[in-house]
């Protein structure tokens, strides 16, 4: 998979404060790339540099093989976290204006707008003023403005904030559809469940430094501890516990189940899962046997609190 966006040792300082310390990323073409990090980590600084809103103090950015330059704004669609619209302007006019700023001709902008308004079923809003819309409605317009010019690279900063579940789902589907059409998406959020659901790559920035980057599966593989969650129905719990603790580290587990079995989390160390299974099957009826895969949430918290 080739790389669409390459961030190379980017440094950004505000006075004495270092917002980005030699951060490098590579965003593969066609990926949904989760940019994670606690508040103040430097995500927004990085996104602003990619959007050429601010310039890096050093380092470079390569978009689709070319050094980032002003003409690239039309290849990028950006939905900022702090977003809004002109309150007293009509929706249609405003979208036309913003689309033309991205380099679309008026006719082309109109065509695209009609398509999107129809697709999101918001045709009736064209002549409404933004101040008449609810927050969620305005967010939808902002989303349309962001994707209207068919950018190669889409940057969403907390795209789901302000949406009800139904609309959040519509937007999520649209994001996935855009990826199908070939767009690459950088996705910055604090909602880990949507990262889990959407992203195939992630990077974690903390205190101005990149700590983790890679395919989501690879990252998870690196973080897994070879533990298994086990549910077992046994007549001889003491015997069972004796057998297991001989070989493995055991702790209590918590998962949902319908029967009243014994729930354990067992760390295998270097052993293979079958070795555990052999022990377990001799002592009772196994009802639950699942490898414990770290969630993005776990990885996030673990990484951030380590440092």
């Amino acid at each position: 998979m080739s790389t669409l966006l390459e961030v190379n040792k980017v440094v950004k300082q505000y006075g004495d404060y270092v917002a980005l310390n030699e951060v490098s990323l590579s965003v593969p073409k066609g990926s949904i790339y989760g940019l994670l990090g606690p508040n103040g980590a430097g995500k927004t600084s990085l996104i602003r540099i990619i959007n050429q809103i601010t310039l890096p103090d050093s380092g470079e950015i390569i978009l689709d093989g070319e050094k980032l330059q002003p003409k690239h704004v039309q290849y990028i669609g950006y939905l900022p976290e702090e977003r809004g619209l002109y309150n007293s302007m009509k929706v249609g006019e405003q979208c036309l204006y913003l689309a033309q700023m991205k380099g679309l001709s008026k006719a082309e902008a109109k065509k695209q707008l009609n398509y999107w308004f129809e697709r999101l079923e918001i045709q009736g809003w064209w002549n409404k003023k933004v101040q008449e819309l609810s927050k969620g409605m305005a967010q939808k317009i902002q989303f349309v403005v962001c994707v209207l010019h068919k950018p190669k690279l889409l940057i969403f900063d907390e795209p789901f904030s302000g949406f009800d579940p139904v609309n959040a789902n519509i937007i999520k589907d649209e994001i996935l559809a855009l990826r199908e059409e070939g767009a690459t998406i950088i996705f910055s959020t604090h909602r880990m469940e949507s990262v889990e659901e959407l992203c195939d790559h992630i990077a974690l920035i903390h205190k101005s430094n990149k700590l983790i980057e890679g395919k989501l599966d690879d990252v998870k593989r690196n973080f897994k501890t070879n533990s298994f969650e086990v549910g077992i129905l046994s007549d001889n719990v003491e015997g069972l516990m004796y057998d297991i603790t001989q070989k493995f580290t055991v702790g209590p587990a918590n998962f949902k189940s319908l029967s009243n079995e014994l729930k354990l989390e067992i760390q295998l160390g270097n052993a293979m899962p079958n070795e555990l299974l052999n022990v377990l099957t001799q002592r009772g009826q196994v009802t639950h046997f699942v490898e414990k895969i770290p969630s993005v949430n776990d990885i996030f918290i673990q990484t951030v609190s380590e440092k």
Partner: peptide, 17 residues
Amino acid sequence: IEEKTNRIIEIIISSVK
């Protein structure tokens, strides 16, 4: 100031200087 309080500024600034 209006563009700042509306928070539209970042959207615009991503397309123009």
